[in-house]
Simulated scan of single mutants.
Amino acid sequence: MLYQVTDWDDAYANGPHIPGADGYPPRWAQAAAAFRDHRPPQTVRRGHLFRPKAAAKGLMVFIHGGYWMRFSPEDFSHLAAGALERGWTVLLPGYVLAPEARISDITVEVAAAVAEAADVADGPIALTGHSAGGHLAARMICEGVLPDAVASRITACVPISGLGDLRPLMRTRMNATLRIDSAEAAAESPALLVPRPGIPVTAWVGGMERPEFIRQSRQIADTWAGLGAATDCVIDPGRHHFDVIEGLERDSPLLERLLA
């Protein structure tokens, strides 16, 4: 079957294709606030660090999405629950949003936050993120982003509904805010870059997502496999762009893939 995009704005528009989409962000914020009331985090830079009650087994990093333009760690604190319950320290890094920051700036800021958390959290590091955060999670394991000592501890990278190729976004109206140009797309698209060796990568995406997100997930898994990385692409049946992250809240195949 031919796959052709004629409306790039619609290709990356999730809300109009998800029943009750407007209700998700306020529910996220409410659940996140309730979780912080129960498990107050340590404030780090613009983000949050949650520590388990016993000695930590490792560091899990979740990077939020919102097309690099919306949200903050305060909207997603509850997604730390699953890893925290398993005894992992959890970092939710924040970053300056577009248009104040370009995507290249955000990459540097998130890398600094991950490196700082790695200094205070021992053990393996598991990276994940959602949508634009999936892009940033993948970006963290590209060559030259994280210090070698930090990168050597990474045992898994799981971009969820990640954006590995920024070039199509240049065709959307949101690029008036993001300001991606050809040079930045080439420099900041994980699918066009080389991953560090030895890090298993799972591109995780909902089966009910927009075709572009499924294509992007397959693209990075296939491209990086061609560069020698151990990759997989999991299409989570029945999940859409807004509920595909819920597996991080509890034991689930998603959390198992990230922390196993």
Rank of each mutant, 00 (worst) to 15 (best):
M69R: 15
T107K: 02
F62R: 08
A225V: 01
G144C: 08
I106V: 08
E74G: 10
A31Q: 14
T6Y: 13
G206Q: 04
A32L: 09
P147V: 13
A117F: 03
M140T: 06
V205W: 05
V145W: 00
I220K: 01
I235L: 03
S152W: 12
V194S: 04
E116V: 05
A118C: 02
D22Y: 09
A34P: 08
R218H: 14
G238I: 03
V201M: 08
P26T: 00
A33F: 10
T155L: 10
A29P: 03
Q4S: 15
S182M: 03
H78I: 09
P25L: 12
L127W: 05
G129K: 05
P211L: 09
D243F: 07
R45E: 13
T6F: 03
Q30H: 13
P147L: 04
A221S: 13
A176M: 04
I214P: 04
L178S: 01
E209D: 11
R70P: 09
A83V: 15
A55Y: 09
R51A: 14
I180C: 00
S161G: 10
E209Y: 01
P147C: 06
I220R: 06
R139H: 08
V158F: 12
L178W: 02
T128P: 11
A126G: 12
I125Q: 04
I63A: 05
G129E: 05
G247K: 12
D105A: 01
M174Q: 02
L127S: 04
A55Q: 15
H64Y: 11
A151M: 09
P190N: 03
T231G: 11
S152E: 15
A121E: 03
A111N: 04
V234R: 08
A55K: 15
T172K: 01
R27V: 11
F62T: 05
D236N: 06
E256G: 14
P211Y: 10
V244P: 11
A203R: 08
P40D: 11
G134N: 09
R218M: 14
V150K: 07
M69E: 12
